[in-house]
């Protein structure tokens, strides 16, 4: 079984739209939405949820204001600017409060509170789903607003998609990866059979591609590059392909700038379904070339 991951470095290059089209083109695959921060693939694949699970990760400090003596040791020790003075509602006493959005879950305040007024429950960070779509099974997730450790959730989503692919005897898993080069991207890449970077011919696209290729090179994953909206700046597109080759990646095609991609999105369809054929053919070519580089 192969696992192919689509990433972009820079956001908004059309990664999810292309991934959805690939889903329509792959005859025997399962899918994972690894962009758990801003998961959008489901908007095009219209999943029917079959299974729903809570995602828990790490712990969070919760201060019981009633038991707080206001000594401030917790705030002094916290290195994440997560604890600030507060006023206790009942008697107006000066106490302290934890900002859940800033809490790193390290436990320093919990272990060092002289009156043990801080609890440390497990943190529910989101939920994940296994769904049926018109192209095959999809594993997707929703991270709670401001929640941490999306890297672990990305790993979990990929793992579940591989598991389902195995059960359903699929030969392929396609993963819509997150943007950036940080923790969630690393979690989306490790151990993958191949990665496609969807970029655009802009100075930002070129800049971010260089950083992403450093990352895929570091993990020694066969890397292909596709330039979306290439005709916005054909010269830049040439330059990006040359830079990609120099970094050991394989250019696998270009897709033009076309408002039809937005129209398809508004219809809740992939471009290969909604057309026009001329644009869909460009995406088909990218898919064929990419598959050719990873599954000889």
């Amino acid at each position: 079984m192969k696992e192919l991951v689509v990433i972009s470095g820079k956001g908004g290059t059309g990664k999810t739209s292309l991934t959805a089209s690939f889903a329509a083109l792959a005859p025997n695959a399962a899918f994972a939405d690894g962009d758990v921060d801003a998961a959008d693939l489901h908007l095009l694949l219209a999943p029917a949820v079959r299974r729903r699970e809570e995602f828990r990760s790490g712990h969070a400090a919760v201060l019981r204001a009633d038991d707080c003596v206001g000594c401030g040791r917790c705030a002094a020790l916290c290195r994440f600017e997560a604890i600030a003075p507060a006023t206790r509602p009942g008697d107006g006493a000066r106490v302290f409060a934890v900002d859940p959005g800033a809490c790193e879950g390290c436990g320093v305040c919990v272990w060092n509170c002289p009156v043990r007024a801080i609890d440390f429950p497990e943190r529910v960070c989101g939920e994940w789903f296994v769904s049926a779509t018109r192209f095959g099974s999809l594993v997707h997730a929703r991270l709670h607003p401001g929640a941490e450790n999306s890297g672990k959730l990305v790993s979990l989503v990929r793992e579940q998609a591989r598991e389902i692919a195995k059960q359903e005897r699929r030969d392929l898993v396609i993963v819509d990866g997150p943007p950036g080069t940080g923790c969630p991207v690393i979690a989306a890449l490790t151990g993958a059979s191949g990665v496609l970077v969807v970029t655009e011919p802009t100075v930002s696209g070129a800049h971010d591609l260089a950083r992403v290729l450093e990352l895929t090179g570091h993990f020694k994953i066969p890397t292909a590059v596709c330039i979306n909206k290439w005709d916005l700046n054909p010269e830049q597109a040439d330059g990006i392909e040359a830079a990609a080759r120099a970094a050991g990646a394989t250019p696998v095609g270009r897709v033009r700038y076309d408002k039809a991609a937005t129209r398809a999105q508004r219809l809740g369809q992939t471009v290969v379904e909604a057309g026009p054929d001329s644009l869909a053919d460009e995406i088909r070519a990218v898919w064929k070339n990419w598959i050719g580089t990873v599954a000889p």
């Binding site: 801003a38 959005g101 800033a102 991270l143 401001g146 941490e148 999306s150 950036g180 940080g182 969630p184």
Partner: peptide, 14 residues
């Protein structure tokens, strides 16, 4: 800010 909705965004907006 970085895109998305997770911890780096919260760290920026605070």
């Amino acid at each position: 800010s970085p895109p998305g909705t997770s911890c780096p965004v919260v760290a920026t907006v605070r």
